[in-house]
């Protein structure tokens, strides 16, 4: 089913003391993918600034801007209209015609060609150390006939390990830390899932985006949403899983950026002059338009 969703994402960044200058990069604009199509997207910055846009290594659209007048707050407003659910069922795994690829075998994943092709989505990265998940990975691997089954099992396992608790972790919390703490938010569910998948040998990547929280979207109703994160696992094609909500990834998911972990796709990052001290208030409003 195809939805058309309007996203209004406002980040209100406050500095403890006014800063003289700041340099920022936002990764908040949805991607065009086989399963979603961006109809319209724009970004506004306050105080006003000229914005420079580029695609980074991971293919994400980055908006860079700098401010040189003293400012105590920075507001970044991203608005986008996206058609979602263009593929069949899980969308991300299907090609343009909606066909699902042949599932990969364990041998396929172990081949040198696959391991090299997906090296970055298998190797340790700053926030995810697959080695820490070796034990559970071995168990899942032994119990599953093929990688696709193992991937689904890994997602369930990760969900079972964490309790959802907002603000229980931060942007630098690693998969291992979240797992031992037993609590986390979507980012942590995603990181833990990535750790297990990569330990099993299934290439897996971090997806940042938005999630429309109500299963039935009333057209025209404004719904408070959040920035969201989930995983995509490669088993001959990319299949998306939402370990936080354990729902199928489909028309309610909007993809913004993909990378190895959160640090590759952080929605807003920057540096400013002066001593550290700031807080951010994020508001996401999703409106189903069609």
């Amino acid at each position: 089913m195809t939805w058309r969703i309007e996203v209004n994402h406002v980040t209100d960044y406050r500095y403890e003391r006014p800063v003289v200058a700041s340099y920022n990069e936002a990764r908040v604009t949805p991607l065009d993918t086989p399963s979603q199509s961006v109809v319209d997207a724009n970004l506004a910055v306050s105080p006003r600034a000229e914005v420079f846009a580029y695609r980074d290594y991971w293919g994400s659209l980055v908006h860079a801007f700098d401010l040189h007048e003293p400012h105590g707050a920075l507001v970044v407003t991203s608005r986008a209209v996206v058609e979602t659910g263009l593929g069949l069922t899980t969308g991300a795994g299907a090609d343009r015609d909606g066909r699902l690829p042949e599932a990969a075998s364990w041998e396929d994943l172990r081949s040198a060609a696959t391991e090299d092709r997906f090296y970055e989505f298998l190797a340790p990265c700053p926030l995810v150390s697959p080695l820490d998940f070796a034990e559970v990975a071995a168990a899942i691997r032994a119990a599953c006939a093929d990688p696709a089954e193992a991937a689904a099992r890994a997602v369930e396992w990760a969900r079972s390990q964490l309790e959802y608790a907002s603000k229980s972790t931060g942007v630098t919390t690693t998969a291992t830390q979240a797992w031992s703490g037993g609590r986390g938010v979507c980012q942590d569910f995603t990181h833990v899932t990535l750790g297990v998948l990569r330990a099993i040998g299934v290439p897996a990547r971090y997806v940042s985006g938005y999630f429309y929280p109500k299963p039935a979207g009333t057209i025209g109703a404004h719904v408070v949403g959040e920035s969201h994160a989930w995983v995509e696992a490669w088993t001959a094609g990319w299949t998306a899983y939402d370990p936080t909500n354990l729902v199928e990834v489909g028309e309610r998911h909007i993809v913004v950026a993909r990378g190895r972990d959160y640090s590759d796709v952080a929605p807003l990052r920057g540096v400013y002059s002066g001593p550290a001290g700031s807080s951010a208030c994020v508001e996401v409003v999703l409106t189903r338009r069609a």
Binding site: R55, D56, Y57, D116, Y119, E120, A123
Partner: peptide
């Protein structure tokens, strides 16, 4: 060179000096 299999991606992508910030321009 990766596609042609002369140098594995791993050698480059695992290097701490491979700066993805410098890609694509």
């Amino acid at each position: 060179i990766f596609d042609d299999g002369v140098v594995p991606r791993r050698l480059v992508q695992s290097s701490p000096h491979f700066h993805r910030q410098a890609a694509n321009f």
